[in-house]
Design a binder for these strands. Structure first.
Lengths: 186, 186
DNA sequence: GTCTATATAAAGATAGAC
DNA sequence: GTCTATCTTTATATAGAC
């Protein structure tokens, strides 16, 4: 028994980090358990001590992301003005896109995950609720489409070469400005 | 010899249509030759009369798209004012995203294709050139990132539920408005 | 907790008949 | 131009030793 119950770099966590990197680079479907095992320095069978199936690995890799998105919405609900809610949602999504960009890109774009989450029914519900929260129950189509372009373009914009000369703060600011323009909040 | 040399629904074309639909729905890697053959009503071996490899099918499916993007840029180069060039590029990309949306989404997002095109070196070059054409040689980062969000978000926004109530013209208009806002052209 | 070895299914691809 | 049959490789997954 360890005297330190806090999270260390246990085998499981290391596997997840390796898997996420490969998923983001090659796509989930193209990443075999053999690839993950090789990269992690274990054998394929060794993975099965930690996980029963590949899907279990996938879901565990994306778990932090799947939790982070509703958390953003909950924080936004605590605000009373529309402006504050918009900023909380846009800012929260930008944080995720910038600092967990691998996971965010996989979550938003990988076809394997789309199927695994059942055509993303849960994702769609979260997005509907979040959209309604910041745009109101009956927003004009232009604004809704602007928001759709923001969420769909965020992962790509976050890893665009145009970001490289900017520091962290400028990156957040630039992406926030994109969102505000699309939602006509500037 | 046929009296009608024009394009009919030959076996090859039908295979491409089937393949594109499956690629867009499940991703390229998750779509096996068996899947395509089943859907097209032939056997797996039958595919190999038309194509030597799966990659050949993939590239042939995406060929119209890979040709359409540079064509947009060439049309834009014919204009002299920046405004006209911007509208030609944005409008051209919107046309593709709306009317060849399956192919466009696959082209922009599928990890299999990214690898097949060699980390998309050719795509990156096209995008650099197009970006420079409409933004000038040294655009401010905010505008470049806005353009990145547009191209990356276009496929997703084009198939967002918010599009359904709109007719074709309104859809084009809404997406164009997104682009103009991101580029501060309104 | 990680290994060797193996089972089983499915992938891409080819040979050759019709 | 499409088929049946088959080859080879690789995928997920399991059994059981250490």
């Amino acid at each position: 028994m360890s005297a330190v119950p806090s999270r260390r770099r246990t085998g499981r966590d290391q596997l997840l980090a390796v898997a996420l990197r490969l998923f983001a680079r090659d796509g989930i479907q193209a990443t075999s358990l053999q690839d993950i095992a090789d990269e992690a320095g274990v054998t394929k069978a060794g993975l099965y001590y930690h996980y029963k199936t590949k899907d279990e690995i996938v879901l565990d890799v994306l778990r932090p992301l799947l939790d982070a998105l509703p958390a953003v919405t909950r924080r936004a609900e605590a605000h009373r003005t529309r402006t504050a809610r918009v900023d909380e949602v846009l800012g929260g999504l930008i944080e995720i896109a910038l600092y967990e960009h691998s996971g965010f890109a996989v979550l938003m774009q990988d076809p394997y995950l789309t199927r695994l989450l059942g055509q993303q029914e849960s994702m769609r519900q979260w997005w509907d609720g979040t959209s309604t929260l910041i745009l109101g129950p009956d927003p004009d189509p232009q604004t809704r489409i602007g928001l759709a372009m923001f969420i769909n373009g965020l992962a790509g914009a976050g890893r665009d070469p145009a970001m490289t000369p900017l520091d962290d703060r400028s990156r957040r600011q630039a992406l926030l400005e994109c969102g505000r323009r699309l939602l006509r909040c500037d």
